[in-house]
Design a protein around this nucleic acid. Structure first.
Lengths: 335, 335
DNA sequence: TTGAAAGCGCTAACAA
DNA sequence: TTGTTAGCGCTTTCAA
């Protein structure tokens, strides 16, 4: 563990002042060619790397952002979390920011003086953290949640329109008898997806007892149960819109086991484009892809703009999912 | 964005010196009750939070560790990465450390002056980073990789013994005709698991053309192919050890589809205890659980010990997987 | 184009 | 039990 060189050592080695070294390190151009070269040589020779704490203290900017991830062990979430992590990680690398990761159940707070801004990967279980950050006036972006109540930038997926589009796609294929299996209706996403389905059908609202609307919880088991019910109907649907891919996989499975062919007898469309679920399906499933990675990148860039004063911290950014056509949907033969 | 209070403001507000404030903040006990209370009140009133950069600079410790994660989009990896992240995140919270996350394809380097130590979640694609860190004499721990060539602490899973145990378990159940489907033999894990299988069978080495050894790649498709071959054998195995749960799921699927009952006709054992795979299996699969979360916690604690000088940085820690008995294995009825 | 020097906010001797 | 003060390593005026 040989002593780490500091700016003074470099200055001595190069025969210039520390100010000059600082200029070279920070690429402040106003340095004579020859001196610049000497400094660079010294930096290389001494393996000098500026001490970030000192830089941050002196420059009053610390070039790091925090990412708060709820400690929430849901399976879909693991795919979600990873996409977010990769997206933010990627953006951060490009922006030359450090990333402070804080995985929390909500009690321990992010070290807010270590960062210039915070991204919440979701608001679940972290409402206090958001308040805490907002109170400090720290720039902040919330992902996957849309609110107009908070003066904060939000980046979210348009679940409503995506679902509407999914249903409209089925209609374009000639389907009229379109069922849905909803997600956990405690979540905003599930509600929006149900409403999108209703809208896609051109309805205002749904009859509580509509036999084409089954209530699931995003999980495969709930979809299995719902699908069995749907297949038993006197007048079964020709298409099913599942509010998650995990459920779509369950739907396909039950159909196959019941001798109902997908997509010949019944078309199935999912939501998420979640490879963790889809890779276990026999039939490649058509789905609405959520741009999670993109959402994370956009959130990071938005935060960066707020930090650098290039944007106000109250934008609402809505991302549109994209229809990924695979082979679980078929044109309905006109009878 | 009201001005952030610093230690001076607090001192003034409380009517004491900054040193006293510092003592209170750092819980250095040697402060009179009444003063302590005044300082705490001032801290609360001014919402004071010490500036970490200044703390780090002054105290020459920065209380942060880095975690390097290869940007590697394999599916099993996503489960792996998440377990690691959660384990490290958890440990870090307990140790009151900050976590700097660096997801990289290998080119951009972790800001090493921002951390006191670094954990590599895997060495794949990050060999240069390891060298870089080692060269600086920065404390460092490598997970999921064992090497005696590097003077560095390693925390890894004992794939060899785990596989041996899996096979021995099958033998105890009365099985003699035990097949295996290997993982991608380019990886150390797959090789170790194959060797454990051989050892479990009490053999020295395997015949290249042994019809009970099928070469897979950890993925489900390779297992499907292999299982079909295994079932076609004149003398088919009564048990199959798959080197990953994803493959085990494929094995079970093919068996079921071929009218071979698991576990009645054939016993299946997997490896990983990967819920992402297992939740898609009809039969609950017996498997060897890799203690990934634990590995991450241990790695973090080990790093902490190295940083605080309580341990040397060259330990090799080997973790034993655990047999998770579910219902894919059955005692072989003695003929 | 350079260097001297004043901080940045804090910790940790040291003295009182 | 407290306060004074000298740094920590760097950035950034300001003057030269």
């Amino acid at each position: 563990m040989n002593k780490i060189a500091n700016i003074k050592d470099v200055a001595r080695e190069a025969g210039v002042s520390i100010a000059t070294v600082s200029r070279v390190v920070n690429k402040l151009s106003t340095v004579k060619r020859s001196n610049k070269a000497r400094v660079e040589a010294a930096v290389k020779k001494l393996k000098f790397r500026p001490n970030v704490s000192a830089q941050r203290l002196a420059a009053k900017r610390n070039n790091a952002i925090g990412l708060v991830v709820p400690r929430y062990a849901d399976i879909f979430h693991s795919f979600y979390a990873l996409q977010i992590l990769q997206g933010v990680g990627h953006a951060v690398e490009k922006l030359k920011l450090d990333l402070l990761l804080h995985i929390t159940s909500g009690d321990s707070f992010l070290n807010s003086s270590a960062v210039e801004g915070v991204i919440f990967s979701d608001i679940i279980g972290n409402e206090d953290q958001v308040d805490n950050v907002l109170e400090k006036g720290l720039p902040c972006v919330i992902m996957n949640y849309l609110t107009n109540d908070l003066p904060v930038t939000c980046v979210a997926i348009d679940n409503f329109n995506a679902s509407r589009k999914a249903v409209e796609y089925l209609i374009k294929l000639g389907h009229k008898k379109i069922a849905t299996i909803t997600g956990e209706l405690k979540t905003q996403a599930a509600i929006d997806r149900l409403n999108g389905y209703i809208k896609g059908l051109g309805k205002k609202k749904i009859d509580e007892k509509d036999s084409y609307v089954k209530y699931g919880d995003f999980g495969r088991d709930s979809a299995i149960k719902a699908t069995k019910e749907l297949l038993k109907l006197k007048n079964p649907p020709t298409a099913i819109f599942a509010a998650s891919d995990e459920m779509a996989v369950g739907v396909v499975q039950v159909c196959m086991e019941s001798g109902v062919s997908v997509p010949k007898d019944i078309s199935v469309i999912g939501f998420d484009d979640n490879p963790l679920a889809l890779r276990f399906s026999h039939v490649p499933i058509t789905t609405m892809r959520q741009p999670l990675h993109e959402m994370a990148v956009i959130a990071t860039e938005a935060l960066y703009k707020i930090i650098t004063g290039k944007a106000k911290g109250n934008k609402k950014i809505i991302l549109q999912p994209e229809l990924i056509e695979r082979s679980s949907c078929l044109t309905l033969p006109t009878a």
